[in-house]
């Protein structure tokens, strides 16, 4: 580790420490907003770990999230809370591994299509199972407060950032970047492209499932329609792309403005949310194809260019 790395690490730790102080303000509105921001940060960052370098757009976040929620919901009666988090992660990772093994050997389109309907398919299966056994939904009753959920999510965010940082400097991250640049070249230089992609996809799947499990107590009552709401996948994709997936901190700078914007939108135009979400998508594709990160890099280049002329 160089001095620069330490500097970055310390900056990140200080920022995290400041963020952890939020519940102490005692403002319930800010805290609930904080939970949303933390949740989307973890989801978008873990999404970008896989989809950023490979350019494979995963729309499966809602499926993993829902699986995590359901592991928590069906286990909370019989098992202690803390054992359920790793169990949820395991379930999410397993689902991701299965999906990855089936689709990631092939071209990216198959993967996108498969993930597009995954949440809906899992929802149908859960609903069917519940109808068979006569359940409708489950209650998740815990002693956890909003602040506890917030702190857990922050902790998870720290873990995701550390993991992302470690992956970036490992052979795995290097292989992933080569795959993103040119999959053919990667395969020819001896990289097991399918394995690398599946591995990273599993990471993003298990993180999303853990988030679902952590959030479950906040819902109190879980039913398939809320746990597997497909909108979640799309929001995560938008936020990550808005920030830019080229840097580890990219999704974060997309999450914060978008969560605030979304808060305003869903409060003032509750019937037009889908329309506005679509317009945001189009805006990103046509105006900000590389997100805020790309914009900043472009501005940086322009400034350097001017200085060189001066």
């Amino acid at each position: 580790m160089t001095a620069r790395d330490w500097q970055k690490l310390i900056t990140a730790a200080v920022l995290l420490g400041i963020a952890a102080l939020l519940p102490l303000t005692g403002n319930a509105y800010w805290l609930s907003l904080g939970v949303s921001v933390a949740m989307y940060t973890v989801l978008a960052t873990s999404w970008a770990l896989f989809s950023g370098p490979t350019h494979y757009i995963s729309l499966a976040t809602a499926a993993f999230f829902g699986v995590g929620t359901y592991v928590m919901g069906s286990g909370i009666e019989v098992m202690p809370y803390w054992t359920l988090l790793p169990l949820a992660a395991l379930a999410g990772g397993l689902l991701a591994a299965l999906v990855g093994l089936a689709t990631l050997r092939l071209s990216g389109v198959y993967f996108v299509i498969f993930t597009l309907g995954l949440a809906e398919m899992v929802r149908q299966c859960v609903t069917w199972y519940q109808n068979q056994t006569g359940h409708k939904g489950t209650y998740v009753l815990t002693e956890l407060t909003e602040a506890d959920i917030y702190w857990q999510l922050l902790g998870l965010a720290a873990l995701v950032y550390l993991a992302g940082w470690a992956i970036q400097r490992s052979r795995l991250g290097f292989a992933l970047r080569i795959i993103g640049d040119d999959e053919e070249v990667a395969a020819h230089s001896g990289i097991n492209t399918a394995l690398v992609k599946v591995a990273l996809f599993v990471v993003s799947g298990l993180v999303a499932a853990t988030v679902g499990a952590i959030i479950a107590p906040r819902y109190v009552y879980i039913e398939p329609a809320t746990a597997f709401a497909p909108m979640l996948s799309f929001q995560v994709v938008i936020m990550a792309l808005l920030g830019g997936t080229g840097r580890l901190w990219g999704p974060l700078i997309g999450v914060i403005p978008f969560t605030l914007l979304w808060e305003v939108i869903s409060a003032s135009f509750p019937n037009q949310t889908t329309l506005l979400l679509g317009l945001c998508f189009l805006l990103i594709v046509y105006v900000l194809p590389k997100g805020f990160v790309g914009l900043m890099q472009r501005l940086d280049l322009m400034r350097q260019g001017r200085e060189a002329f001066a």
Binding site: H55, I57, G108, E183, N271, F281, L282
Partner: peptide, 25 residues
Amino acid sequence: RGALEQDSILATFGLSFVMVGLMVW
């Protein structure tokens, strides 16, 4: 072609939301 696929998926995806929104409206 890969880049076009990614872009067109995102763009038509946005378009689908816009169309759903307009039809609901």
